[in-house]
Amino acid sequence: MIFARRVLAIAWKDLVAEWRDRESITAMCFFAFLVLFLFNFALGGDQTLIRGASSGLLWLAFAFTAVLGLARSVQGELANDCLDGLLLYPAEREAIFLGKLCGSFSVILLVELISFPIFSVLYNMDIWSQLPKLLLITVPATLGFATAGTLLSAMTVGLRAREAMLPFLLFPLTIPLILAAVRGTEVVLRGEAFELAMPWLKLMAAFDVLFLVGSLLTFELLIEE
């Protein structure tokens, strides 16, 4: 019970801070729009090309955008030595990790949900009829990305070049996840049978479980000096 309250307290604190400052969300939404707009502009008016590349472009935008939010996940705690304060509580390290993960996951998912209408308009895609299926792909992909990102954010927090190191480590590590998300989204956007997306969904689920368990086991070692 106390464990769950601690997880929720950390997530609540991060979300309240984000809501009041809106620093990350504003930057992330703007960045997602910019990436989607620039790719659309670069591809010109070729609708066949746009439709073929749209799911990949969508996930590229999401991945780049998520890094902005994840960079603040643990690194944001450095202000006023709050990270030390957090580590000084007699709280399970797993609760701290899960709390940070919940906060990051919620912010990234919110930005993705805001980006869907922008994507729909810019790429002339009818995503609304496919939204539930799209969410079935988006949620596990975002969870995996947020899990790996939160862990790496903790791992790089003590480094001088932490902001550069996070994407440098995160993108190679999450290639299988991004690939699965792209393929799964492709199936959904083409209106094909959802069964075709199942292998990708399973891959994402495996990635999520692997990273969640791995993160819970290693977070304490990584976050402490």
């Binding site: 309240v16 400052d21 202000a79 006023n80 030595d81 709050c82 030390d84 304060g85």
Partner: peptide, 9 residues
């Protein structure tokens, strides 16, 4: 601690 360990927001 020297830093106050409080959340500004």
């Amino acid at each position: 601690a020297h830093g106050h360990q409080l959340y500004d927001t």
